[in-house]
Design a protein around this nucleic acid. Structure first.
Length: 229
DNA sequence: TCATTAAATTGTT
DNA sequence: AACAATTTAATGA
């Protein structure tokens, strides 16, 4: 098992800040266990920390007044989230829930703001991350409205590949079809169908408790031109 | 190391 | 949603 500092040093933003800054970060970031199904943070809570996923998988979702749950995105190990609420100094706007047993890192608000004030590299990282997320969400609106289910699953898998948001992801994605269902808001059965269709097309290979990406380019493009064109 | 069992995940109705 | 089949992980000889 990797230690907290090792994993912090391996994160993408850690390479963009100075060594002495990293020392303070390592001293102040702490770790937390989140069993599957528990909340990492809830909507409405004050945003007191930046959140990193060290191990496991979490989803960001909102619950409407009538109890419907909408998942915006999943964040696997290596991803960081929650900078939006920290930057705007407002309460959390979404729920973050662990899908698997997860180890979560928390960087206190003070540390986060100090980095923001003192490190150009850190600012650059945040800029890139925010930009990626913006693109991700714009794409999501398009897909949700225009595309069929197969294409949504294809896009989602391509997303898990995003090297900016989710670094260190190999072409082997360890995720069950049930988890994919939670993340995409599609039933497990339908996810299964979509995966098999994509497998037939040679874009991915479906295996036990995981998926291998064979052609990320085409996966991403799958949505742009619906089948049959 | 191999066989047996339990648990997780997938494929189908 | 429920069921059976398949794969992985765990256990003990």
């Amino acid at each position: 098992m990797n230690s907290l500092s090792e994993q912090l040093r391996a994160s993408r933003w850690a390479r963009m800040i100075a060594a002495e800054q990293m020392q303070r970060v390592e001293a102040e970031v702490f770790e937390q266990q989140c069993p599957a199904g528990t909340a990492v943070c809830r909507k409405g809570e004050p945003a007191d920390a930046w959140i990193g996923v060290l191990e496991g998988l979490v989803k960001i979702n909102a619950v409407s007044a009538d109890g419907k749950s909408v998942t915006f995105t999943g964040v696997p190990a290596g991803g960081w989230l929650g900078e939006g609420s920290l930057l705007k100094n407002e309460p959390r706007r979404y729920d973050v829930v662990a899908l698997r047993d997860s180890r979560i890192a928390r960087m206190p608000r003070a540390t986060f703001e100090w980095l923001l004030d003192s490190s150009i590299g850190f600012n650059r990282f945040l800029l890139e991350q925010l930009n990626e997320r913006l693109g991700q969400f714009i794409g999501m609106v398009e897909y949700d409205r225009l595309l069929d289910t197969d294409a949504r699953v294809a896009r989602y898998l391509a997303e898990m590949f995003n090297p900016i948001l989710y670094p260190g992801f190999s072409s082997q994605i360890r995720i069950s079809q049930e988890e994919l269902g939670y993340l995409t808001g599609i039933s497990r059965q339908r996810v299964n169908q979509a995966l098999q269709a994509l497998d037939k097309l040679g874009l991915i290979r479906v295996g036990y408790a995981g998926i291998e990406i064979l052609d990320a380019e085409q996966l991403r493009a799958f949505g742009s031109s619906p089948p049959g064109c």
